[in-house]
Amino acid sequence: MSSKKIVITGGPGTGKTSLINELIKRNYICLEEISRQVILDARKDGIEQLFLTNPLLFSERLLKRRIEQYYEAKIAESSLVFIDRGVPDVLAYMDYAEENYPKTFEKACHTCRYDQVYVLAPWQDIFISDNERYENFDQAIKIHDQLLNTYNKYDYNLIDIPFDTIENRVDFLLDTLI
């Protein structure tokens, strides 16, 4: 059985993790955001902000783990798997930072295809910076725009999740699954 792979994406601080947590609470299989782990691993190696210090190295590590997540979702024993960010997110952030990356990044976007992509727009009322999120709200808007551009480049039909309570946002997502 091949699982339906559903990506939840959006700029920083848009509520992706809260949505994933609510889906987990409702007993759905979810693969959580992994960039925080890449950041924490780099800090153990003495690099405070790996993306800012070496964007390509950070993105290569992130891409490797996102590809692993894709294949984990593909073989999951569930009809649905929700993923906090997909492979195209890596390219979107590199484009946002105006950094170059190898063609293997683009190849990964063609190879790792998701069944549906949901987008959370920047929402000032819930945006919070923390130790792993260095972006401000204006940067979050620019990242959001770049995410839309990147997913559109790879021919995804993007579904916007409206601003609402976490429960209503998850209900919307579940009600609109194809």
Rank of each mutant, 00 (worst) to 15 (best):
S2M: 06
K5L: 04
I6A: 02
V7H: 00
G13P: 11
T14Q: 09
T14F: 07
G15S: 11
G15M: 05
G15L: 09
K16C: 11
L23N: 04
I24Y: 05
K25L: 14
Y28T: 02
L31R: 00
E32K: 14
Q37S: 14
L40K: 15
D41Q: 15
A42V: 06
A42S: 14
A42E: 05
A42H: 02
R43P: 01
D45T: 09
D45H: 12
D45F: 11
E48Y: 05
F51Q: 02
F51I: 12
F51E: 01
L52Q: 08
F58T: 06
S59N: 14
E60P: 06
R61V: 04
R61N: 14
Q69H: 13
Y71M: 09
K74A: 06
I75Y: 08
S79A: 11
S79L: 12
V81A: 06
D84G: 03
R85D: 00
D89T: 15
D89Y: 07
D89F: 02
V90N: 11
A92C: 10
A92W: 00
D95P: 00
D95M: 00
D95T: 00
Y96W: 10
N100W: 08
P102D: 14
K103V: 12
T104D: 09
K107Y: 10
C112K: 10
D115W: 06
Q116F: 11
V117I: 12
V119M: 15
L120S: 02
L120E: 02
A121H: 13
P122I: 13
P122L: 12
P122Q: 10
W123L: 10
D125H: 10
I126M: 08
I128T: 15
I128D: 13
S129A: 15
D130Y: 06
N131M: 07
Y134G: 11
Y134Q: 15
N136E: 12
F137H: 07
F137K: 05
A140F: 05
I141S: 01
I141R: 03
I143V: 12
H144V: 01
H144S: 12
D145P: 00
L147C: 08
N149M: 05
T150K: 01
D155A: 10
N157Y: 10
N157I: 14
N157Q: 13
I159C: 11
D160L: 11
D160Q: 10
I161R: 07
F163A: 15
D164F: 08
D164R: 11
E167G: 08
E167N: 15
N168A: 13
V170H: 03
V170C: 07
D171P: 03
D171A: 12
D171L: 11
L173N: 00
L174Y: 05
L177S: 03
I178M: 08
I178N: 13
